[in-house]
Design a protein around this nucleic acid. Sequence first.
DNA 1: CTGAAAGCGCTAACAC
DNA 2: GTGTTAGCGCTTTCAG
Lengths: 335, 335
Amino acid sequence: MVSVVAVASHAGVSPATVSRVLAGRVPVAAETRARVLEAIEHLGYRPNEVARSLRAGRGRAVALVTGDIEQGIYASLAKHVQSELEALGLDLLLFNLGHREDRLRHFLERAPSLGLRGIVLSSPHVMDMVELTPVIRAAAESGVEILSVSQDLSAFGITSIVHDDVGGAAAAVAHLMGQGRTPVAFVGRIETSAIGRARFNGYRDALLAHGQPVDPALVWDISEGYRADAGYHAASEALARGLRFRAVLAASDELALGCMAAAADRGLAVPDDIAFVGFGGLGWGVFSRPSMTTVSLDSDAMARAVGDIFRSQEGGPAPANRRVIQAKLVVRQSA
Amino acid sequence: MVSVVAVASHAGVSPATVSRVLAGRVPVAAETRARVLEAIEHLGYRPNEVARSLRAGRGRAVALVTGDIEQGIYASLAKHVQSELEALGLDLLLFNLGHREDRLRHFLERAPSLGLRGIVLSSPHVMDMVELTPVIRAAAESGVEILSVSQDLSAFGITSIVHDDVGGAAAAVAHLMGQGRTPVAFVGRIETSAIGRARFNGYRDALLAHGQPVDPALVWDISEGYRADAGYHAASEALARGLRFRAVLAASDELALGCMAAAADRGLAVPDDIAFVGFGGLGWGVFSRPSMTTVSLDSDAMARAVGDIFRSQEGGPAPANRRVIQAKLVVRQSA
DNA sequence: CTGAAAGCGCTAACAC
DNA sequence: GTGTTAGCGCTTTCAG
């Protein structure tokens, strides 16, 4: 690997000067700079990022910690965050928890020694903040910017970028009520999911606001993950038990798809017999049949907000400790 | 950050001894080791990975370069590869090309300076190997292990892990022929996609093997991406033009979903009027209605093969230059 | 405006 | 078995 020393000797200057030309913050004689630039070009020199990181005390990587990258919403977030970071000259380290939340702690403990610039927590899982706080504080003190995307941890002093899950769920319920599709069931109140809980709260509050009861039998908890199979099983069981409901609000598009399949398998018409609303706004929702009405989340806006945090680190104004992104109901065929 | 020096002084030994205890390759007196371990524990010491990387000349990160992480198959691959790498103590750097292939070159140029352990190329895009070869060679010479996953680049000396796309496509065609669903159309021969091309070749060869003509009007190129909308538009147009076909083989599950939507929108019955086969075997395919017959790809097996490469780097036997993973037809309702 | 020198944290030689 | 030393490649004082 060609180093500063090689460039320096080729240009007949000292390594320090090469470094100065690279940094561009200190004046260097135009003629000297030209010679250095020529040498860099000639030798194909690339500054060693590892050495820079060691020197600087931190590197240029930001970790994205997801619950499950296979779920469309996290994949979408990963895409946009990567793109945003790249524009800032930062790299994205991907860490997928795969619903094994104990691994989060180990990762956080490793963070300072990895020289991470930041960590974007994007797990829906309810975290044991009592256990995690010391680790997070240690990381933060060593200069790692920690933020939560999707789950609100601002109460714990962690900058959070969240969707208006409550508002989104409420909009969905209002839409269903407006069509007279009651009762409305809810699927996806995973006990361990902070997001599932928030969406459930929005559903519950909206029902109450409309003077509707919240029927526990119509709230389907699922054990883990927001995958289609969980939705299928929950809805199938409800239908088998003869529960009466005219609509289902699901905590993810995948869950909603599973539910719709269960309805279809019983010969029910969507949305006439039962209407379905998903959460996420994933691309394929347009092409399911019936196409999916969904509370659309804006990964791009979330990613831009993440970018803002890291931009502000470079001297700009610090963004708010809590940033809320709107969730918008997209009405299609299923409701 | 607590360093070796701090640990050393706390344990009353030299930094080198601490390092030796950590490495575990050199004998250290049991009593000394215990003192060091105690100091490490006591101070909460974590070796600085950046310093290690600088010293060792390379780090512990492997980059996964995807075409589009939002596509289910790449998200799935990312998940499994991350998990596999983690077991090896390696981190995953995610780089999403987003179909802007010129960025690949820049990334490859940066690779050596990032101290990457390896690069997993997982883009379907046809690469300009004439342009890329020098960059790849430079990276390889600096110790970065480069491998291609999904696209066969073994002819260029790049270890490749590929699915049997040809065999998978052939199995799909054979299945459709066995049901008498001819003619069979193909969607997704993207000009710039090596994988789309491979799958098309399998389709073409299988048709010919069955004594069927390959009708150019039934091969739908799409401009970019394997998204559902492209499939929808291609199939809609074909139907609008009155083209006659009884089945469609799509180069991705997303494309197939789009095609099925187009058929549904025209009131056609699936699979009776037209049958559809996707490519990928994504989880939600079970829950589309009709559920999707698909050529199932095995991201997990691919990831394990990737893991094998990096395991072998640590001294084991080097795996073959080309590894083929079977693609298996999964028959569901759509065909 | 430029050079010399120190040092980020670690480990591999090389002594002892 | 253990300590001393040097150096990975870079940037940043500190001199000049």
